[in-house]
Amino acid sequence: MPSFLRKLKWPDLVILAVLAGVFGYVALTVEGKLNYDWRWELIPNYILRYRTDTESWFANLLLQGLFATIRISLYSSVLALILGTILGLARTAENLTVRLLARTYLELLRNIPPVVIVFIFYFFLSAQLIEALNLNAWARDIARGENTAVWEFFFGDMRRFPSMVAGVIVLALFESAFVGEIVRAGIESIPRGQREAARSIGMSRWQEMRYIVLPQALKKVVPPLANQFITLIKDSSIISLISVQELTYKTVELVASTRLIFEAWITTAAFYFVLCFGLSMLFRRLERAR
């Protein structure tokens, strides 16, 4: 018997039974009062589908959306980490102007609804950047080429590449505010005596940060950064509002075309749960191994 089952006590079993009863009651209520016809047998075809003409399996709507969510989350987290580290350093800078600018950016993003921020960044920044770099024409040229397998592996459908870039930029700019505060807290957690000792032996501020402060601060901020990465995955659903074709957007498409309302959204919720819970367990294990 698995170890987690051996740890279960009778209150845990009662809670599980109550949860099962609640889910069963909701399912029966939906089917009875709303006269809803459950069609779970159709959902697997929208995850993986067999193509008879090529005799091969291909990822359908939901799996395409899941892959897009993973790609966007990875790229956004890297960009958010870079921007957030810069913001965290700016928040602890000696120059008052730099500190005020960084704090203004952080406070604005942390106190404005994310939906508003997404639209502001999209229309005033990422859309303008994509047009300036002429990414639409570049992505179309690659999509028309022959060797697109590598590009599609990293970026998905290249015809949708500009919208993915827009989503990555918007999500990274939003999440960088939270990463910046985490980095700032990590830097300020280092005892001031260590910094003064570094200055007393002739280290510059850059050397002090590089050799004394940042190595210790990074160890302290890894757990909250891991939690922020999981939050970023869940926040990625917001960018479906700007037509980025990630998991939530694909689910909306599926519901609109098939009317599989409950089946589609429950499946999507399960995808998000498995992804986020799996990463949570992984980060917890890595934290214990440190």
Rank of each mutant, 00 (worst) to 15 (best):
L5K: 12
R6N: 13
R6E: 14
D12T: 06
A17M: 12
V18A: 14
G21A: 15
L28M: 09
V30Q: 04
E31Q: 13
W38F: 15
W38I: 07
R39Y: 02
R39H: 11
E41W: 12
N45V: 01
Y46F: 15
I47F: 11
Y50Q: 10
R51N: 15
R51H: 14
T54C: 05
E55D: 14
S56T: 15
S56R: 15
F58Y: 15
A59D: 06
N60M: 12
N60A: 15
L62V: 06
G65I: 05
L66W: 07
F67R: 09
R71Q: 09
R71D: 05
R71V: 03
R71L: 03
I72T: 04
S73H: 01
Y75K: 04
S76V: 02
S76N: 02
S77G: 00
A80G: 03
L81Y: 01
L83V: 09
T85H: 00
G88W: 01
L89C: 11
R91M: 13
T92H: 05
T92S: 13
A93Y: 01
L96S: 12
T97V: 15
T97C: 08
T97Y: 13
V98Q: 03
L101K: 03
T104L: 14
Y105M: 04
Y105H: 05
E107A: 09
E107S: 12
L108C: 11
P113V: 04
V118H: 01
Y122D: 09
F123E: 11
F123C: 09
S126R: 07
A127N: 14
Q128I: 11
N134V: 09
W138A: 14
W138R: 13
A139R: 05
R140S: 12
G145V: 08
E146T: 13
E146M: 08
N147I: 06
T148Y: 04
A149M: 11
W151F: 15
D157K: 13
R160G: 07
P162Y: 07
V165W: 01
A166Y: 00
G167Q: 03
V168S: 00
I169F: 09
L173R: 01
S176T: 05
A177Q: 06
V179P: 02
G180M: 07
G180L: 08
I187N: 04
E188I: 12
S189I: 10
S189C: 10
I190M: 08
R195S: 12
S204I: 02
R205V: 08
E208I: 01
M209C: 05
M209T: 06
R210Q: 13
L214G: 03
P215R: 06
P215E: 04
K220I: 10
V222G: 00
P224Q: 08
A226M: 10
A226Y: 02
A226L: 03
A226F: 03
F229E: 01
T231D: 12
T231W: 11
S237N: 03
S237Q: 03
L241G: 04
I242A: 07
S243Y: 09
Q245W: 07
E246N: 07
L247I: 05
T251D: 01
A256D: 11
S257H: 08
T258Q: 06
L260T: 03
L260F: 03
I261S: 08
W265L: 13
I266K: 02
F271M: 13
L279G: 06
M281R: 14
L282I: 10
R284G: 08
R290K: 12
